[in-house]
Every structure is written in C-alpha cells, then in structure tokens.
Simulated assay, not measured.
Amino acid sequence: MFIVLSTLMVFTILVKLGFWQLERAEQKQQWQAALSQRQNASVLTYEQLLAHLGNDNLTGYKLSTHVTPILQQVFLLDNQTVNGRVGYLAYQAFEVAPDKPWLLVELGFEAGSIDRSMLPNVAALTSPLALSGRVYQKQMNPMSSELMAETGSPIRIQNLNIEQLALLIDKPLLPVVLQPNNIPGDSRIHPWQPIPLSAQKHQGYAVQWFSMAGVFAVIMLFLFFRKLKQQDNHKN
C-alpha cells in the first residue's frame, strides 16, 4: 500500500508541475500582450508615471522627463552577462523635482575585467538632461535580494534593491528604472529582457513534466504487472 501511495504521489506531483508551467505560460502571454500595449501607448510624464504606482508592475511604460544629477555617484550591478561578455549594469540616481522621488537611470552595460578588484571607469552624468525611454521594475529574488553595496567609487552592488539603495543615498527613489535612449554620446548596450522566460519556454517545460509523468507511469505499470506475473508463477 505504501508503494502504491508513493507512486501516486510522485505521479501527481509531476502532473501538477506540468499544469503549473502551463499556467505560467498563460501569465507570460498576458504579460507580453500588456507590454506590447504599453510600447504602443503615448509617452508618460513623470507625474503620470507616479499616478500608476501601486496599480501593477510598471515595466514597459514609456517616459519622458527632465533630470538633474545632484548626486554624481555611479552604481555597478554585478554579475551581468550581455552577448557572452560578463560585466556590470551602471546606474545613477537623479532628482526630477524637489518634492518628488528621485529616479534611477540605467547608464548601460560595461564589460568587467578578469581582475575583480578593477572596476570599469564609468563617468557620471554631470549636466541636467531631458531623458526619454522605457521603464522597468525588477522582481526581487527571495533567495538573494540584499543590496550588498561595497565602498569606493563607483560602488559595486550585488542586487538592484532600490529600497536599500534609497537608504544608502538618503533620498527617496521611485521603485522603477528608466532605460533611456537619448543619453548624449551614449554607445553602451542597454539590454532589454522584461520577461525572463518566454511563454514558449514554460510550454516546453510543461511538455517535459508531462513526459516525465508518462514515462514514470509506464515504468511503474510495467513493474506492477511483472510482479503480478511473478506471483502467478510462484503459485503455479
């Protein structure tokens, strides 16, 4: 009886994992549709973006605003890979208006050195700018979400924890990042991956889980009938 219950439990878990992946695929399809709508929508002002706070994830909205680089400090997000190269994503926080939260701006990807003690020299923006681009909100990894800021300049961080970053600079920060497309003289890559895994990936994983459940069921049935046959042979 224990073996039968264990077999049913394993089979049920495999099937549930398959259905869970199908649910994730459907969520990603809906999310992709929402991103497409936002990319086709009109550009938001900073005030309009603020009005959307708390409603949903703001990734994909287009934004145009003026920023002032009062704090000329660059932050380097560690362990980033772009086109096979390992390095950092550089960020700088800007004031938008004295009575509004500051805005974190992505300066782009910078390749790292083999010697981790040598950080890339990323110059901070020093003049007021009119920036436009798209915003994104990174989902926190429950297994690793601490900022873990190092000393020095630029400051290397391990996770883009905007709440902790705001405490570090002692300024309120909007919980989104602007990925601009009009920084003067900008030649850095700005990777865009708002959906870590596509719906097709989740569907593929679902097929794998269902296949594993099917193979497991076939193996267990084979063993079950072989045992029955052995018992009949012993009786005879």
Rank of each mutant, 00 (worst) to 15 (best):
L77T: 05
S64Y: 08
S36Y: 00
G204F: 03
Q29C: 03
H190C: 05
A166K: 10
D78R: 13
D115Q: 00
L71S: 08
F216M: 13
A124H: 14
P142H: 00
S117N: 15
I157K: 03
N79F: 11
R134K: 14
I219F: 14
L119D: 00
V207S: 10
Y136H: 07
I219E: 06
L173S: 04
Y136C: 01
M220G: 01
Q37N: 10
I162F: 01
Y136T: 02
L77G: 04
W192G: 08
L8H: 05
V43Q: 02
P128N: 06
N83M: 06
S144V: 02
L174Q: 05
L165M: 14
H190S: 04
V105R: 15
K201V: 02
F11L: 15
P175K: 09
V207K: 14
L165F: 02
W192H: 09
F94P: 10
P191K: 15
E47Q: 15
Q92W: 14
L228R: 10
E26I: 02
V135R: 00
Q179C: 07
L35Y: 03
I162Q: 14
T12C: 09
N161I: 03
Q164T: 01
S187C: 12
A217K: 12
P184H: 07
L125V: 08
L131G: 04
N57M: 08
E23M: 04
P191L: 13
V177F: 10
A199N: 04
S6V: 12
E146P: 01
Q48K: 08
Y88L: 11
L119I: 02
K201N: 06
R85Q: 15
V176M: 05
A51R: 02
L14I: 02
L131C: 03
L14V: 01
I155Y: 09
E23I: 02
I157F: 03
S198E: 08
F224C: 07
G18N: 09
G84N: 05
T45N: 10
P120R: 13
Q39L: 11
R85L: 15
G18H: 09
V176R: 01
V86W: 05
R226K: 15
Q179G: 07
F2R: 12
L89W: 01
L165C: 06
T65K: 12
R134P: 06
N40K: 14
V4P: 00
Q29I: 01
E23K: 09
E26G: 02
D115E: 00
S64H: 13
R134S: 15
Q32I: 02
P180G: 09
Q208D: 09
W102A: 12
Q48T: 03
L103F: 03
Q203F: 07
